[in-house]
Write a protein that binds this DNA or RNA. Structure first.
Lengths: 197, 197
DNA sequence: CATGGATGTAAGTATGTACTTACTTGCAAA
DNA sequence: TTTGCAAGTAAGTACATACTTACATCCATG
C-alpha cells in the first residue's frame, strides 16, 4: 500500500502510535479518533500514549507535521516530451490522492481552525505538489515550450485541480466514473503547447 | 449573504434550529456541533431541540437533506455564446463554493460514512451543478459547437474541478492567490470549441 | 547481580455530551 | 374562561473521553 506518511523511526512505539493516530484521524476525524482506540490499534496501552506524547493533540500534531509527500521524487526534469512527463506526474499525483483521500478530507477542515498544521506537509502534499509543478511549468515557459501569457499558478490549478476534485468528491460520494487521464493531459496541453504544432 | 440553504418555513423554531445546526456543523464538524450550542445559537432551550427532532442526528440529517442549491437558476440555455455562458455559470459556481466552503469541507468526510446524506442535495450542490453542466455540454456537442471525442463528464470536471479545488484547498489554507476566471474559461474552450476558429 | 527506563495493569478523576423527566409559563383558539 | 399546545426551567441519568496516579513487570546495560 502506498502511504503518504513514512516516518524515519520505522517501528518505534512513537511511530506506531502516530501511524494509528493518522489512520483513525482519516477514518473518524479529530474528535472521533479517541486515545483509547489509537492505543489499541497501535497495540500498546493508553498510558503509554500519554507518557510518550503528553496529550492527544500533541500526538496528532506531530504526526501530521511529519507527513512528507514523495511528490518531488517523480517530478520530471523538463525532458521536453511534455505529454509523457505530465502523464507520469499526474498519474503519480492521482495515486497519492487516492491513497490518502480519507486523510486529506479530514485534514482540510482542521487546517481552517488549526493554522499551525499548515506548515511543512500542510495540506497533505498538495502545496508541495503544486509548487513543484509550478517550477516545472515555469521552466517550460522559459524554454518557450509553453505559452507564457498564462500564470504558471493558473496552469497548475488547471492541470491538478480536476484530479483533486475528482478524488475528493467522488471518493466521498462512493462513485467512480471513468476518467481518461491521458485525454486530460492532452486537453491541458492543447492550446498551451508551442512549437509543436 | 448568499446561502445554500433556504428552508421553506422561514423562521419557525425548527428552521432556526436547522440553520444553527448547519452553521455549527460547518464550523466544528458533526461531533463538534453540540446540541447545547445549537440550541443556544438558535435562541431556544435544549429541550426544545429534542422535543422537535428527537435526536441530534435527526436534526442534522433533516437539515442537510433540505439543502437545495440554486445552481440551475443560472444554467444558460445554449445561447451559442459559449464564453459568456460559461463565464456566468462558473462565476455563479465560485460564489456558491465560497459561501459554503466550510459546510462543504465538513460534509465531505461525513458523506463517506453516512451514505444516506448523499441523496438530494448530496455533496452540497456539486453533483447537481455537475449534472446541469453535463446537460449543457451535451447539448453543445449535439449542436456541433463542442468537439465530441471527449466525454461531457470529463469536460465538466475539467471546467469545474479547478474551481472546486481552488475554493476548498486555498480556503482551508487561508490563502487566496489570484485566479483569472475568464482565462480559465478561455483555456477550457481552446481546442474544445468548434466552428469558431 | 543490580539499576534504570520503558512498558503494562488497575483504578480513579473531572468534564462534557446526548438525552430524559417533571413541573411551570405564555398564548391562541374553542 | 377554559383547553391545549409549544416553549421554558431545573435537575438528573448514563456514558464516553482525556488524562492521572500508583504499583508491578520486563529487559538490556553497567
Amino acid at each position: 500500500m502506498y502511504l503518504l506518511a513514512n516516518f524515519d523511526e520505522a517501528d518505534s512505539t512513537r511511530a506506531t502510535l502516530m501511524r494509528s493516530g493518522l489512520e483513525l484521524l482519516a477514518e473518524k476525524g479529530y474528535k472521533g479518533a479517541t486515545t483509547r482506540e489509537i492505543a489499541a490499534r497501535a497495540g500498546v496501552s493508553e498510558v503509554t500514549l500519554f507518557r510518550q506524547f503528553g496529550s492527544k493533540e500533541a500526538l496528532l500534531q506531530e504526526a501530521v507535521q511529519k507527513l512528507h509527500p514523495p511528490v518531488e521524487q517523480v517530478l520530471p526534469q523538463s525532458t521536453r516530451n511534455l505529454e509523457a512527463d505530465l502523464l507520469r506526474l499526474t498519474k503519480h499525483y492521482v495515486q497519492m490522492l487516492e491513497a490518502n483521500q480519507g486523510l486529506l478530507v479530514r485534514l482540510l477542515p482542521e487546517l481552517a481552525r488549526h493554522p499551525e498544521l499548515r506548515g511543512a506537509a500542510g495540506p497533505a502534499g498538495f502545496n508541495r505538489a503544486i509548487s513543484s509543478v509550478l517550477e516545472y511549468l515555469t521552466d517550460l515557459q522559459k524554454a518557450g515550450l509553453l505559452r507564457s501569457d498564462e500564470s504558471p499558478f493558473q496552469a497548475a490549478v488547471a492541470l491538478l485541480g480536476p484530479l483533486f476534485a475528482r478524488a475528493l468528491l467522488f471518493g466521498a460520494m462512493g462513485i467512480h466514473p471513468p476518467f481518461d487521464l491521458q485525454a486530460h493531459v492532452r486537453g491541458f496541453l492543447e492550446g498551451r503547447q508551442r512549437g509543436q504544432r
